[in-house]
């Protein structure tokens, strides 16, 4: 039988304690144990970015991260991202730029976009944005408007 591991971590700003099987992915923990469904499963192998989350300030694929490894760390999902001023700006930019079609890749794109903007100090050109989202697949938009949205959100207003 797989051991259960009790872990405590900061999730979107609040402390959480959960018990998870040692082999469970962080994606399954978020979706099945905690019930936060904004983080999407689309490949389970780190090839599509739909499950992107931020852990201790760095974006990772939740599907590749063992849930017990969240212990003691700070985890931000799309639900947490949109609660920040940058996240709101990103959401508005995605909406206004037409970067959302079926929307399934969008939460992962939003989180990766936040990471990308956080890691750059304002200077974020289109080519850097494209490289920055190379691990996020989108089948609907052709990426143009996603790049538009991230470029717009990267420019702080005022």
């Amino acid at each position: 039988m797989s051991a259960k591991v009790e872990i405590g971590f900061n999730l979107n700003g609040a402390q959480r304690t959960v018990e998870v099987p040692r082999e469970m992915s962080t994606l399954d923990m978020l979706r099945e144990v905690i019930g936060l469904t904004g983080t999407k499963y689309a490949c389970g192998e780190g090839e599509c970015g739909a499950c992107t989350i931020i852990v201790d300030g760095r974006s990772v694929n939740a599907c590749l991260m063992f849930a017990p490894d969240c212990d003691g760390r700070s985890v931000t999902t799309v639900e947490g991202v949109v609660d920040t001023p940058l996240g709101e700006r990103l959401r508005d930019a995605f909406v206004q730029a037409g970067a959302v079609q079926c929307g399934f890749c969008t939460p992962g794109m939003m989180v990766q976009a936040k990471h990308l903007i956080d890691m750059h100090d304002g200077k974020l050109g289109r080519e850097a944005i494209k490289r920055g989202i190379e691990g996020n697949l989108c089948r609907c938009t052709g990426y143009v408007k996603i790049v538009d949205a991230i470029a717009a959100a990267a420019q702080p207003k005022g």
Binding site: L36, T37, G38, T39, T77, V78, E79, V82, L90, R91, F94, V95, Q96, G98, A99, V100, Q101, G103, T106, P107, M110
Partner: peptide
């Protein structure tokens, strides 16, 4: 803007 976009972008 698409009507369903804000919810989709928020997860």
């Amino acid at each position: 803007a698409k009507l369903d976009a804000p919810d989709k972008a928020s997860g």
